[in-house]
């Protein structure tokens, strides 16, 4: 790893670790290896959003050319959000692409991701299915996102009805995660979700 990249990550790591956001359990960064090329991030779901109460883990890869190029970041925790792929966790965020600037830090990135959770941009989607639901059936989107926060990010249990639908499909022999994806995609219509999985 280039010297400047490693030096910066070491300093940034300290900066994030001692920041106020950490003591407030808002953001967190951990080392994965001692070469500083890969880190594990975590952000708390923002209050008054469908992600509230959830902890979202992130994979952060530091390129050799950091900070001249942005870190590569994706969600490890599954999440239902228009700008984050529900399949791969890939993120659509301009500062992680062409709006990156060398003065930005891991802390900037984590706080920006938190802001993205609070304010989705459905017109620049990463996940077309989620974005369509966000725009056309927002109440269902909110319930679905909250349900995913509970199922994958340790968020509070809230929606018995959705949980029961997942269980009913599990009892039909479907894999739990696949059932949840199908139900989420088909606006929680069990018949259509089952058809979707069989076809």
């Amino acid at each position: 790893m280039a010297n400047i990249a490693e030096q910066r990550i070491k300093r940034e790591f300290k900066e994030v670790v001692k920041s106020d956001e950490v003591s407030a359990f808002n953001i967190k960064v951990e080392l994965v290896n001692d070469t500083f090329t890969e880190l594990r991030g975590e952000i708390a779901g923002p209050p008054d959003t469908a992600y509230e109460g959830g902890k979202f883990k992130l994979e952060i890869k530091i390129p050799e050319t950091y900070p001249f190029n942005p870190p590569q970041v994706k969600f490890v925790t599954k999440i239902w959000h228009p700008n984050i792929s529900s399949v791969t966790g890939a993120i659509c965020l301009d500062i992680l692409k062409d709006q990156w600037a060398a003065a930005m830090t891991l802390r900037t990135v984590l706080l920006s991701l938190q802001a993205l959770l609070a304010a989705a941009e459905p017109d620049d989607p990463q996940d077309a299915v989620v974005a369509q639901q966000f725009k056309e059936n927002n109440p269902i989107f909110q319930r679905t996102a909250r349900h995913w926060t509970c199922a994958y990010a340790g968020g509070p249990k809230s929606d018995k009805e959705l949980e029961e639908k997942v269980v009913s499909m599990k009892n039909m022999g479907f894999d739990e995660h696949k059932a949840r994806v199908a139900l989420s995609t088909k606006d929680w219509d069990v018949t259509r979700a089952a058809e979707y999985l069989i076809s």
Partner: peptide, 11 residues
């Protein structure tokens, strides 16, 4: 924020 469907190759 996100702009993945826009061209990122503007020079």
């Amino acid at each position: 924020m996100g702009n993945c469907f826009k061209s990122s190759s503007n020079d």
